[in-house]
Nucleic acid binder design. Structure first.
Length: 470
DNA sequence: TCGCCCTTGAT
DNA sequence: TCAAGGGCG
């Protein structure tokens, strides 16, 4: 019996997995393969490093079920063709993705394999509702979130499939490259050791996280998720982006919490749908990840990369809550959602720096980096995106800190300078950063690089000018 | 066509 | 109180 190649990408799990479910139903040998291909090679330091951790855990899960994970490096199509030749496979399956570079790759692969006379099948496993299945009344795609939410909230994405108990093995397993040889953490330098304790890797960890959130977090999610110093969110983004947990599994849990009358459950479901919305937009407007979504913003006088942006990246803007967020990201590979909005507003408005500079840094530092959500979020904050905040909505970091970190707990957690006994977390930043930055806690905390009022006024003036087309 | 509405705000 | 324009039904 000819084996089937299961090409794994952002679906590093065995349950809630339509492609895998289909393969196992065929009763034929299955060969799971992950390819370090032309798309994955472009990922930033932290996502690549985190991918390596995920692959290691996935390999163990597959081995427990009597299968293996075959790792190969190269252009996706070349790798798949080589494996087909080595194994006699006549079918390749995968779960679909929707961001421009992923789709370009996948479309080309599908066409090429089919022209080779092979079977290539893809499945819906990465989002709740695929982008082309959600239409406005006039048959277009959605550009505003709330109508999108109303269009999908009563739809059923289907029940998640259980993990297969065992796999039919091929007579001979193809060779796998060694994960260690890929050296996926090489761009992380000292950071890897610091970030590692914060990562929750693999499907079992993800399911534990979901269970914990359903038991403790969801009821108070509405207000809890806004507090900078608290752990009020599900924390699932890290696992969702690599597919270590399925989105329908999360949806089903949210629906159960709704049925149980948990107050925050609907907000949680809405957040899951925000993730879908980002993929909806990335599919229908592929330039979301690379260009201003509204082209009229091309004329806006944003600075490209600059010294102020460098201070922002290093958590040295002199604005405590902004620096705290940036350092949280450097140490943990994640950042509180509200802090993400704050630092994005600050970079694009007070520092008038292009959102792509920020999006690129996030893509390098976040272990939960998701290409669609990251681009949508940055364009939303900058004002160039769909359903964006109006230009006059400029976050005031001081006001935000007062509201969402009233006792300064979050700021003290991440800022060491000027503190008699800095928190371990704050010191950890200085262990994680490159020595080339030349930063020590002893050099004191910087004065603000831009006066908040001046920055705000300058941005408002520029937005106004853009508006009148001058 | 019209009218309501629009994640997360600031002064 | 401010405040823009367009999405959507």
């Amino acid at each position: 019996m000819a084996p089937i190649l299961y090409w794994m990408r952002r679906d590093l799990r065995l349950s809630d997995n339509p492609a895998l479910t289909w393969v196992v139903q065929q009763g034929r040998p299955v060969i799971p393969v992950f390819c370090l291909d032309e798309v994955v090679e472009t990922w930033g330091a932290a996502p690549k490093w985190r991918l390596g951790l995920g692959l290691d855990v996935l390999r163990g899960s597959l081995e427990d079920a009597g299968a293996r994970l075959i790792l190969r490096r190269g252009q996706a199509l070349d790798v798949l063709r080589t494996l087909i030749e080595e194994t006699g496979a006549d079918t390749v399956v995968w779960n679909r993705l929707y961001v421009a570079d992923e789709r370009t790759r996948d479309t080309a692969v599908k066409e090429a394999l089919r022209s080779d006379g092979l079977t290539a099948r893809s499945f819906a496993g990465h989002v709740l509702f695929e982008p082309w299945t959600v239409e406005t009344g006039s048959g277009g795609y959605y550009k505003v979130y709330t109508p999108f939410w109303k269009a999908v909230r009563d739809r059923d994405p289907g029940a998640p499939e259980p993990a297969p108990k065992e796999f039919a093995a091929p007579e001979v397993w193809p060779q796998s490259e060694a994960l260690d040889d890929w050296d996926l953490g090489r761009a992380m330098s000292r950071g890897a050791a610091v970030v590692a304790p914060y990562a929750r890797v693999g499907s079992a960890a993800a399911e534990g996280r979901l269970g914990h959130f359903m038991a403790h977090g969801v009821a108070d999610y509405d207000s809890g998720r806004d507090k900078l110093a608290e752990d009020g969110t599900s924390g699932l983004s890290e696992n969702l982006t690599l597919g270590e947990i399925g989105i329908r599994t999360c949806w089903a849990a949210g629906q159960r919490a709704m049925a149980d009358g948990k107050p925050g459950a609907e907000t949680f479901l809405k957040e899951l749908v925000w993730r879908d919305f980002a993929h909806h937009l990335a599919y229908h407007t592929p330039h979301l990840t690379s260009e201003n979504w509204r082209s009229e913003w091309d004329a806006f006088p944003w600075s490209d990369d600059n010294d102020l942006a460098e201070a922002w990246r290093r958590g040295r803007t002199g604005v405590e809550v902004v620096d705290a967020g940036m350092r949280e990201m450097y140490v943990t590979g994640r950042m509180h959602n509200r802090a993400r909005m704050l630092v994005a507003s600050y970079l694009t408005k007070h520092l008038m720096t292009h959102w792509k500079v920020g999006a690129d840094w996030f893509a390098d530092c976040l272990i939960d980096w998701d290409p669609a959500s990251n681009a949508m979020g940055w364009q939303w904050a900058a004002g160039s995106g769909p359903d964006a905040s109006p230009f006059f909505r400029i976050f005031n970091p001081d006001t935000q800190a007062e509201k969402f970190d009233p006792r300064g707990t979050y700021r003290r957690r991440w800022l060491a300078e000027g503190q008699a006994k800095p928190k371990e977390t704050a010191d950890a930043f200085f262990e994680a950063i490159p020595e080339s930055w030349g930063l020590t806690p002893g050099q004191g905390y910087p004065a603000p690089i831009v006066d908040l009022k001046e920055g705000r006024d300058r941005a408002l003036a520029a937005y106004k000018q853009r508006d009148t087309g001058q």
